[in-house]
Amino acid sequence: MSEVAARVQVVMADYRDSRQGEDILALMDEYARDPFGGGEPMSDFCREHLLERLAEFPGAFSVLAYDGDGDGDRALGLVNCFMGFSTFTCRPLVNIHDVVVSAAARGAGVCTAMLDFVAREAKNRGCCKLTLEVLEKNLPAQTAYRRSGFKPYALDEEWGTAQFWQRYL
């Protein structure tokens, strides 16, 4: 275990807490600027409205990872989650929408600590599974997710794995 991983503290984020709000926005901006996050800074609109919209959105929750006890320490990572529902199991699920680990903390177990926290929260909420999307060429993220027990989704291997598609509105 790395020195950073030994000190990582993961907490449920409070969107209305000013310090945690600043940390969420800073980490989201770092993610947005990364090539795997689109390579552009977060928009002014998102900066201004993201926290209030997350706080109001039913089933949204986020976790933050800090280097230390989370009180005045450096924010290392963020996971944004949304509750969903599995019709096949008739139970809720958690979709992990954003996973951010600050560049300086990558490879130190921060992602694993946050995903383990989310898994415990999902179990407490009676969920059947966690879902997430990852870009095909984001191999470091895929490695981290596999280490945490994720794998490509397939109902039957004969039919292949599911693909994540989108349609802009």
Rank of each mutant, 00 (worst) to 15 (best):
K151E: 09
R91T: 13
A103R: 10
V110H: 01
R91H: 13
E52Y: 04
E22Y: 11
L51M: 07
G70K: 10
A122D: 00
N80L: 13
A119Q: 10
A144N: 02
P152Y: 03
A108L: 08
D116P: 01
G107C: 09
L76C: 12
G59S: 09
L76Q: 04
A154Y: 12
G72D: 03
A144F: 03
H97G: 05
D23S: 12
L132R: 02
R19K: 14
Y66M: 09
T87P: 02
L50W: 06
C127M: 14
A75I: 06
C111R: 01
A105Q: 02
A144S: 12
R19N: 11
C46S: 07
V100C: 08
L93Q: 13
S43G: 13
F150Y: 13
V134A: 14
D44K: 03
N80F: 00
P58Q: 10
G38T: 03
C46G: 00
L130K: 15
D116L: 11
S62W: 00
C90S: 15
D71L: 11
C128N: 15
F45Q: 13
A105E: 02
D29G: 10
L78G: 01
L93K: 12
P152C: 03
H97Q: 14
I96C: 15
P41L: 00
T89K: 15
L76S: 08
T89A: 10
V79Y: 05
L54T: 03
R53G: 04
F150D: 05
R146A: 09
A113N: 00
A141L: 02
P58A: 08
K151S: 15
R91L: 04
R147C: 06
P58N: 09
I24N: 00
A113K: 05
A105I: 03
F45C: 11
D71F: 07
L130P: 05
S102Q: 08
F61K: 07
G84W: 08
I24T: 01
V101P: 01
R47G: 14
Q142M: 11
A65T: 09
V101K: 02
A32H: 15
A75Q: 04
T143F: 08
E158L: 12
E157V: 14
P58M: 12
R120I: 06
D156M: 13
E121I: 12
L135H: 09
G107Y: 08
A141W: 01
D29H: 06
